[in-house]
Design a protein around this nucleic acid. Structure first.
Lengths: 136, 136
DNA sequence: ATTCATGCAAAGCATTTGCACATAA
DNA sequence: TTATGTGCAAATGCTTTGCATGAAT
C-alpha cells in the first residue's frame, strides 16, 4: 500500500490494512461519490486476497467515524461516500442520481449561516447545501 | 373525511380515499417529519377499516409525486415526510435524529443561490439546506 | 495471549411488488 | 365494466451482525 495512504489512515487512528488502504485509495481517486456497492465492485479485484462486502461496509463506517471520509445522503435508501472532506456542497443530477461537488467558490459569497435557531436553544455545527437539477 | 383534505387531494389530482385522507391529515397536523413507519403507527387505528403498510408506502409515494407533501432525506436508510411544501430548510438534531423546519426568515438575507455550475451545463431546479447540530 | 480485522452467511430493516379482492365512476 | 385502490405476503435491496478464522502487537 502506498505510503501516503498508510500515513493518512494512521493520522486518523485507523489501523492500515490492505483492504482499508485499497478502499481509501479508491475513494481518493474518484469524484463520483460511489455507493458502498460501487466501492465494492471497484476494488474487489485490486487485492491479492479476497474482499467481502461486510468488510467494505465496516471499513466505510470506520472511515466515516474517524473523519477520513464523509457520508453523503442524497436519496433515500443508500449512502454515498466522499473522500473530499473540505468544505463544499453537492449537486444531484435528478435524472441519473449522480452527485457532484460544488466548491464554495461556485456559489459566490455565501454569508456564514448561523440561524438563531429556535431562540438559540440549538447549536448549528455545520450545514450542507444540496442542489437538485439536471443537465441542460 | 374533512372537506379541506378532500379538496386538497382533489386539487392535486389525487383521488380521495379514507386511507389517503387520514395519512394526509396526519402529516398536516404534525411538524415532526415522520418516517413511513411512524405515519403507519400514528394512523393505523384512526380508520374504521384496516390499513396496511403497503398502502401507507403507496400513499406517501403518490402524495410526493403529486406534490402534496415533500420527501426529506436526512439520514441514510429511511425517508421522512413533510407536509410543509413552502420554501424552507431543515435542522437535524444529531443526537435524536429529530428534524425541524427552518423558515427562510431564520437564516437571514440569503441571496438566491444559482451557482454557474460546471460552466452552466447544469440547471439548478432547487436546493435544500440542511443544518446539523444539537440542543444546547 | 490478547486484541482487532476479515469473511461468510444469516439476520434485520425499509421499501416495493404481484396478485386477488374491493370499491367507485 | 373499467379503472383504480387496498391488503396480504413474498420479494427485494441495502446494511448490520454473530461467529469462526486469521493476522498483528
Amino acid at each position: 500500500m502506498s505510503y501516503e495512504i498508510e500515513q493518512l489512515l494512521n493520522k486518523h487512528g485507523v489501523k492500515p490494512t490492505p483492504q482499508r488502504a485499497v478502499i481509501a485509495e479508491y475513494l481518493m481517486s474518484t469524484m463520483s461519490h460511489p455507493t458502498a456497492d460501487e466501492v465494492f465492485q471497484a476494488v474487489e479485484n485490486k487485492l491479492p486476497v479476497s474482499l467481502s462486502r461486510a468488510t467494505v461496509y465496516n471499513t466505510l463506517n470506520t472511515l466515516v467515524e474517524k473523519g477520513v471520509i464523509r457520508e453523503v445522503v442524497t436519496e433515500a435508501g443508500k449512502a454515498r461516500y466522499d473522500a473530499n472532506i473540505s468544505d463544499h456542497h453537492h449537486f444531484v443530477d435528478l435524472e441519473t442520481g449522480q452527485v457532484m461537488d460544488v466548491p464554495l467558490e461556485e456559489i459566490g459569497n455565501l454569508p456564514i449561516i448561523q440561524p438563531k435557531f429556535m431562540d438559540g436553544s440549538f447549536e448549528v455545527q455545520n450545514f450542507q447545501i444540496t442542489f437538485f437539477g439536471k443537465r441542460k
